[in-house]
Every structure is written in C-alpha cells, then in structure tokens.
Computed example of a mutant assay.
Amino acid sequence: MTTTTVRIGTAVSIPLSRRALGVGAVLAVLLLVAGLLTLTLGSLGIPILSLPAQVIAPTGSEGFVLTRLRGPRLVTAIGTGAALGIAGALFQTVTRNPLGSPDVIGLGVGASAGAAASALVWPGVVPVPVGALVGATVAMLVVWAGTGRGFSSPSRVIIVGIGVSAMGVAVTNLLIARAGREEATVLAAYINGTLASRSWDDAAIIWASLLVIVPSAMLLGRRLSLIEMGDEIADSLGANASTTRAVSIVVAVAAAAAAVSVAGPVAFIALIAPQVAKRLTRVGGANVAISAITGALLIVAADLAVQNSPFEVQLPVGVLTGAIGGLYLGFLLVREFKKGTI
C-alpha cells in the first residue's frame, strides 16, 4: 500500500496511506453535507441560500436559529463524535479486541453516575463535567483493579466492565429516584445521551478538550501500531507496552469523559466508529484521525435523524445510537464467540 510520511519537526513522523487520505476526504465531505442538512432541514431550517450571509452576520429569526439553537448543537455534536471515536480507537487498539469500548467496559456509565451525583447531590459545588470525569476515572480504576491484571487481559476487562456498568446504572437510578420530578426528567434525558439545548459553552468544553486529546493520541500512533503486534515485539522495539497502554487509557478516559460531560453517554459511537474506520482504510494501528471523523459523522447523522423523526417528542440521540449499536454489539459477540476469543 502506498504511503506518505508527514513530518512535524524531527521528533514526529506520521505515515499516511493514500487510501486513508482518500477515505478521510470522503468522510469529511459527508460530514459537511450532514452538517448543512442539520442547519437547513425542518420547520426551523435556514434556507441554504441564506446560510452564508447568516454565518457572516446573523440577524433575525434565522440568525437566532443558527447562533442559539442549531449552530451550537451541531458544533457540539461534531466534537462529541470525534472524542468518542478517538476513545474507542485507543481502547480497541490497546486491548487488541473489537469489544474494547468505553460503552462495554463501564466508562460511560461511570461518567453518568458521576455527573448525576454532581448535579443532584452536590449541585453548584462540583461542576457536572468534573463529576463526569471523576466518575469515569473511578469506573476505570475499579475495572483495572478488578481484573487482577490491569488492562492486559481483554476478556477480563470486558467481564469486570459489565459488572461496573451494572453498579453505575444502579447508582444513577437511585439518584434519579430520589430527585424531584423536573430534575429527574432533565437527568433522564442526559443519561440517555442528548444534544438538545446545547450551548456554545458546551461546544467550547469539548473542543478545548480535543485541543489536548488529539495531539496526545496522534503522538501515540506509532507505539499503538507496535502494540497490535504483541507486547513482546513492542517492548523489543522500544515502545514500552505497559507505559503506552496506561497513557492510552488515560487519554481515552479523558476523551470519553469530555464527550459525556457535554452530551451524556451517547451509546456505541465509540464502539462502531473505529471499526468502520479500520474497514474503510484497511490500515493497522489506531486510525485516530479517521476514527474521529467517522465518529463525528455518525453522531451528526444520528442527531439529524432524531431532529427530523415523525415522533411528537424528540428522542435523545443516544436512544437511536443505542438501538443500532446494540444490534452491532450482538453481531460482534457472536463473531468473537465463533472465533473462540471470548
């Protein structure tokens, strides 16, 4: 496969295949189309011919829709999908398992429990994003300790993660049961994963997080490619598998927690995006950039669907991604069982 090496100074070199570059370009165009449809479809849609003028100088009702309703929602969706795609790519690479996803091993549920606790138990004391990060970190520490072997055994990580998820759901449901009706309604939408009523503050949080997460994940690229070949080979080539795995998990936790803090646990984007990216590019390694674009496209397309659904009540985007992702997870479980890997 023909590759091109992109060098950043003397310390960083990034090999890129021409196929991956082509796939990335196509996905970016599809993301642009989905974004335009998000802004222009529906009763509140902005006419596409008016859109350039509104972007430059928002005015009137169309400007309100762009700057207060759909604009921040779209920008938040793109950032959230990118963060989840990166988190899933890192998890699946370091565990060498297609089931290695924040959804499967309890990170999203842990972040939801932390966010619920900060919103209902310590309102105004602990910010929701901080609560989500703490909850995600605690969940991962429990998984790491519960396996007895850290993250080195993918099958144990998945089994313990299922148990952690169950505990996180129990904690979240307990908090909802004790909350007031209005608080419970808002929190229920959040823990299902929603992009409704997002603001520019939410967009700023996720994109500020990506400014740190994306370079960190890209710098891990070469080491992650070596880890895919086995820890012994990675160590012999200077990748230091244990350290790389630990750093990758930290970056993945930060990415998933950032996404959950602004949109709740949007289900299965982190599971599906990296696998779609790998199948399209046919390239080994984490495929961080393509996974990020794929995750953004998936969540924007899903949000477009729920915004234009025929239901009287607009569903949280996580309900749609959860339904589709659940079917895909079932397919993966059957395939891995037949392979004898689980």
Rank of each mutant, 00 (worst) to 15 (best):
A208P: 01
G330M: 13
A305W: 05
Y328H: 08
W207R: 09
I213T: 05
I324H: 09
A252G: 11
S216V: 06
S209V: 08
G295P: 09
V262F: 05
A323E: 00
A273Y: 06
M229S: 13
P310K: 09
R245Y: 14
S209T: 11
V266L: 00
G318F: 04
N287A: 12
N287R: 12
A239W: 00
A256Q: 12
S309K: 06
A259T: 09
E312K: 13
V306I: 13
N287D: 14
N240I: 00
V262D: 04
M229Y: 01
L327G: 15
P316M: 05
F331Q: 12
A208N: 13
V306M: 10
T244I: 03
S291P: 10
I293C: 03
A273W: 07
V212S: 11
P274L: 04
G285S: 08
A301W: 06
I269H: 03
E228I: 09
L327A: 14
G322D: 11
I269C: 01
T243W: 11
V313N: 10
A255S: 07
A246Q: 12
N287P: 04
P265M: 07
A246K: 09
A259V: 03
R245Q: 07
T321Q: 03
A234V: 07
G325S: 02
F311K: 04
V319K: 03
L304H: 04
L219N: 01
V214D: 11
V266Q: 01
A259L: 07
S261Q: 08
I324Y: 05
V306Q: 03
T244Y: 00
S309H: 07
Y328D: 00
